[in-house]
Every structure is written in structure tokens, then in C-alpha cells.
Design a protein around this nucleic acid. Structure first.
Length: 356
DNA sequence: TTAGGGTTAG
């Protein structure tokens, strides 16, 4: 008797474009933009087909990778296929703004208005709200939402206009637009950077009372705030709290703590955290290594700095200009300068060999 | 019934 053949993956029914877009959209939301592009290329457009959504997700991914050239070439496909770009213009405006190309963003915005068939909406204005004002948006009868207000609050906080931030906060609530965790994160982070960690803690409590759970960003900002004041035990307490709440821990969380310990010359604790994050599968970046090398140099432990220097290379993390600068400065400050400079030359030579 | 805008380090 013949056994029924198993269907080959290529013979199975292909997903619909909508289903494919949903998957692609989720990958983009996780900020895996390169994966979106390779996924798109691999799936073979001719087999599934693509629509306005697919191409917009693709353009958005190129925008976030600072590859506006590719974004614009995908836009060409719209015209070739006779598709209406619609919201895609907003994506492109955002792409230009991400590259600080404000003139091109404004030009595209004007083209959008003149084109007639793709008028700007709340998302377009939300994208431009950092550079422009809400006045025009209101005059056109387009209501701002929580994202628009969060952008505005972030903008005024950066300018140190605390009163203005409060005014926007009250204004949004009066319009029944309620702040969410990201809005509060802007406030928490600003307070922490201003050294007002207790006030930031108060905002977190108020968050919690209103049924909003703090997230990784909230805890990272708080930890950074305590680290800045040298209150490492409190920073550590926040870290324990976020772990107990099951909040996702990322490279930035560890970076905040490691930075804190290094700045306060607690190198053993900093190194333990480096080991811990590696065990969790989090890959320390060059900035974390530089912080640690700097920490060791500042406490005069050049040998440990040297060891870390080798270790980072063994892990595939190549030292950058800053790493060399940190080590160089430390060598200059010690009487071991001449002896160490030979080592430095050797490292530099090896680095060039790796590049070449 | 799928796409575009807001927050954290160095």
C-alpha cells in the first residue's frame, strides 16, 4: 500500500496578503526592520502578491534603517502598479525627519496638500507636531490624540518648560484624552534627569493607582535617576521590583545599572551584571564595554581593563575610537605610559588587520 | 479588515 505523501511546504495553500501583512506588521512593531525586508524578499512577491499595506510596511522599515533611497524606490512601485500611496506619504515624511531632513519632509508635506487625493490626518500631524504647532491641526478640525500630546509634552520637557508640560497634561485630560504609560514615561524620565527621583517615584505611584502598569522604560528611567544620585541600593531595588513584576529586562536596563556602578567605582558589582546579562542572552554593546573599561581605568586597574579589552574582542565586539581614547587617557595618566603604549600599538594593528 | 506618528543608555 502506498503511503500518502506529505505536502511539501511550497505546495501548501499560500497565506492571503492580509495575513501576510499582519505577520509583517508584527515583525515591524518589534523593530526587526531588517527581518521585515528579508522576509519580504524571501516570500517571493509573485507568489503571494503585495498591496499598499505591504509596501508601506516595507517603506517604513527602510525609513527606520535610514535607507531613504530604498524607501523612495519602493514608492516607485506604487506608481508602476497604479496604487494610491495614501498613508505612505506620512511614513516617508517620518523617514525624512528621522534623518533630520526637515526641508524634504516639509516639501513632501506640501506636495501631499497640493495633491488633493491624500490629505494629511492626525498621524501626519502627529509626525510633524514636534516641528510645528497644534494650531493648524485644530483649525482644520483634526483632533489631537494621546500620541500628539505625548510628543508635545516630550518637546516642552526637553526645553525644560515644566509648566507648559503640566498645561498640556491638564489640557488633554480636560478633553478626555488620557495619558498612557508612554506619556508618564516622558514625565518620569524628565524628573529623573532633573535629579527629582522622589517626585518621579511619586508619578509612578500615581500611575499605578490609575491602573497603568509601569513598563521597562519606566523602570529604566527610575534606575538611571537613582544611579545619577549615587543611590545604588535604591536603583537595585527598582531592578528587583521590575523582575518580580515580570517586566521585560533589556540591554538598556543593564546599561543603566552598570553605568551607575562604574561611576561609583563599584566594579565588582558592574562586572557581575555584565555576566548576568550575558547569561540571559543579552548581548552587551560597545557602550557598555566602554563604560566598564573606563571604570577600571578610573580606579587604576589597568590590568582588568586590558583583560576586558581582550574579552570583548573574543566575543566579537570590536573596540571603537572611544575605547582606545579611554585606555589611552588612562595610560597617559600613569607612569606605565611608555610600556602600555606598545600594547596599544599592537591592539591598533590587530584592529586594522581585522578591518582589512 | 491587514499599513503610517509618541517614551529609556552611551
Amino acid at each position: 500500500m502506498r503511503t500518502p505523501k506529505r505536502k511539501n511546504a511550497s505546495m501548501r495553500p499560500l497565506p492571503s496578503v492580509v495575513r501576510f501583512n499582519k505577520i509583517l506588521g508584527q515583525v515591524a512593531k518589534l523593530k526587526h526592520y531588517s527581518a521585515v525586508i528579508s522576509f519580504y524578499n524571501q516570500m517571493g512577491v509573485s507568489r503571494i502578491g503585495h498591496d499598499v499595506c505591504t509596501l508601506t510596511i516595507l517603506i517604513n522599515s527602510y525609513c527606520h534603517l535610514n535607507q531613504m533611497g530604498f524607501s523612495l524606490s519602493v514608492l516607485g512601485k506604487f506608481f508602476k502598479l497604479g496604487l494610491e500611496p495614501m498613508s505612505t506619504f506620512t511614513t516617508l515624511i517620518n523617514g525624512f525627519l528621522l534623518e533630520n531632513r526637515v526641508v524634504q519632509a516639509a516639501e513632501l508635506f506640501n506636495k501631499m496638500i497640493n495633491a488633493g487625493n491624500c490629505q494629511p490626518d492626525a498621524v501626519t500631524y502627529g509626525t510633524l507636531v514636534k516641528g510645528f504647532c497644534m494650531k493648524e491641526m485644530m483649525s482644520k478640525g483634526i483632533a489631537p490624540d494621546v500620541i500628539t500630546y505625548t510628543s508635545l509634552i516630550h518637546g516642552v520637557c526637553k526645553l525644560g518648560e515644566w509648566k507648559e508640560a503640566k498645561r498640556f497634561l491638564n489640557e488633554m485630560v480636560s478633553k478626555s484624552i488620557f495619558p498612557d504609560v508612554r506619556t508618564y514615561n516622558v514625565l518620569v524620565d524628565t524628573l529623573c534627569k532633573e535629579g527629582m527621583v522622589l517626585e518621579a517615584d511619586g508619578v509612578v505611584e500615581m500611575m499605578i493607582q490609575r491602573g497603568i502598569e509601569p513598563d521597562t522604560v519606566t523602570y529604566s528611567s527610575l534606575m538611571d535617576g537613582y544611579c545619577l544620585r549615587g543611590e545604588m541600593s535604591k536603583a537595585r531595588k527598582v531592578f528587583k521590583l521590575m523582575l518580580s513584576k515580570g517586566s521585560m529586562v533589556d540591554v538598556i536596563c543593564y546599561s543603566a545599572l552598570i553605568n551607575g556602578y562604574c561611576k561609583h567605582k563599584m566594579m565588582d558589582e558592574a562586572m557581575m551584571l555584565l555576566r548576568e546579562m550575558t547569561c540571559k542572552g543579552l548581548i552587551p554593546n560597545i557602550a557598555i564595554y566602554n563604560t566598564l573599561v573606563d571604570g577600571y581605568c578610573k580606579v587604576g586597574k589597568l590590568g582588568d581593563a586590558q583583560q576586558l579589552f581582550s574579552e570583548m574582542q573574543a566575543c566579537g565586539q570590536l573596540p571603537d575610537v572611544q575605547t582606545y581614547a579611554i585606555y589611552w587617557m588612562a595610560c597617559v595618566k600613569t607612569d606605565k605610559f611608555l610600556q602600555q603604549s606598545n600594547c596599544l600599538k599592537r591592539w591598533k594593528a590587530r584592529r586594522w588587520m581585522q578591518i582589512l
